[in-house]
């Protein structure tokens, strides 16, 4: 039994290593601190922004902007199952659609960039300016200058 548990431990570690490697450009067991979120979510874990920030703060090497695998591996291994159980479930397309409809107060069938920006940067777990700009470039229809969220969800 103990052996089985030890084996499962290594299995989780290997999984984390593999996800980490994807972002380790120089193959020197370091990743950019801003990419920890992507690594964690690729492991099927979706902590809240607050949890994520706390986690990263714990990992970062003296404000260097880097996270080392030696530090990431034990901390992440310990939290893997916790995060897994406590992370929010991925939104279904239906609930996402409902959410967008809620924001579309006038039921226009689309959202104006200003409207979306207001909600995304002032409510909930607010977006940074960078995130917001990224979202707008990715989602705004350049011809009509609006977000057709029904199209969006199809992706």
């Amino acid at each position: 039994r103990a052996q089985e548990e030890a084996a499962a431990g290594t299995e989780a570690e290997l999984k984390i290593r593999s996800a980490f490697e994807v972002f380790d450009h120089d193959s020197n067991n370091t990743v950019d601190v801003r990419e920890t979120g992507a690594i964690i979510s690729s492991l099927g874990c979706f902590p809240t922004q607050a949890d994520l920030h706390a986690f990263i703060a714990e990992l970062e090497e003296d404000q260097s902007g880097h996270v080392h695998l030696d530090k990431f591996l034990p901390v992440m291994t310990k939290r893997l199952h916790i995060y897994y159980f406590f992370s929010f479930a991925p939104a279904s397309l239906k609930s996402l659609n409902l959410g967008l409809q809620v924001l579309d107060k006038e039921k226009k069938g689309h959202l104006e960039p200003d409207e979306l920006t207001k909600y995304m940067t002032q409510e909930g777990e607010p977006f940074t300016q960078e995130e917001m700009e990224e979202m707008l470039t990715a989602l705004v229809d350049p011809k009509k200058n609006c977000v057709h969220y029904k199209e969006l969800i199809k992706n």
């Binding site: 990419e35 992507a38 959410g99 924001l103 995304m120 409510e123 909930g124 607010p126 977006f127 990224e134």
Partner: peptide
């Protein structure tokens, strides 16, 4: 607020997976 959180989480997850 609930709707915003839902979309923000969805979007962050979407971007993280895209990046991966």
């Amino acid at each position: 607020m609930k709707a915003a959180v839902l979309i923000q989480r969805w979007y962050r997850r979407y971007m993280a997976r895209l990046e991966m």
